[in-house]
Design a protein around this nucleic acid. Sequence first.
DNA 1: TTCCTTGCAAACGATTTGCATTGGA
DNA 2: TCCAATGCAAATCGTTTGCAAGGAA
Lengths: 153, 153
Amino acid sequence: MAAVKENPEIHEMVRRRLTDNEVRYTSGRRSVVTAILVATGPRSAAELAAEPTCNLPISSLYRTLSVFEEASILRKHHGSDGVARYELDEWLTGHHHHLVCVSCGLIEDIEVPDDIDQEVHEIATKIGAAAGFRVIDHVLEVEGVCVNCESES
Amino acid sequence: MAAVKENPEIHEMVRRRLTDNEVRYTSGRRSVVTAILVATGPRSAAELAAEPTCNLPISSLYRTLSVFEEASILRKHHGSDGVARYELDEWLTGHHHHLVCVSCGLIEDIEVPDDIDQEVHEIATKIGAAAGFRVIDHVLEVEGVCVNCESES
DNA sequence: TTCCTTGCAAACGATTTGCATTGGA
DNA sequence: TCCAATGCAAATCGTTTGCAAGGAA
């Protein structure tokens, strides 16, 4: 994930957030966070379950994911295949965007320099305001062909 | 949808595209296009099926949608609920982006002035290139609260 | 006649839920 | 002790597919 704040601290931040929500930070839940920490982009339930560190039944995994989503620890995305993928919320990783490979479906996190991101945000705000929206955030996805797919073609 | 080129012409353009793909433009398929023409943003299979003009069985609807997707007549998106939503491809509607209401899930098409869109595209290209991506397109989603939700809160 | 298209029902895969059991504060 | 958390199996729901019937070239 995009420059996650030092690893061990994440667990502590998550624990605090869960405690605030009156939810326990159990070992099962810890293992899901650990699995997500090795990712460099959004991951599906199946992908997380495959992570050796994370060996809990799929139903518990899903329950954990939704608890985390509720507590804004994870954010859910839906890729082109319709499968839900999760990654740490931006207050844990910093604001970032995604590179999407239209060939293999790979999704990678990418950070955008503050000044440029600010520019995008202003554009988004302007666009939204014109339609009567109160703009909160913007999502910029860069679609293209990744290095691997490019070399294979 | 964003400024669709005159309605009747769309059917003609679709027919031509299908003919090029050696696929027939049947009445069932025509009715799906008609249903999509009344939309102002991406629509799910269920939503299209609910359209009175479009009364074909859900399985045929799905088959039609995938034929259209294959022929680049429709583009598939996945909203926050994971349900697939379709809208006319950009060569039929013009390039545009989406306003997403984080409160009710509404998705509306929005056109962005060429010069501004060009700016966004350059930013996307720069970002992607830095990661070794050959950038093809960019998707900008503006997240906020729509007029309705804003007035209700 | 030939092949595409359609309808219906069954199959699928991701995600959710009911319920009895376990475990942590 | 007590209620949240877990595991398993069964249920859901959107979507896809097999197969036989219908229709256009």
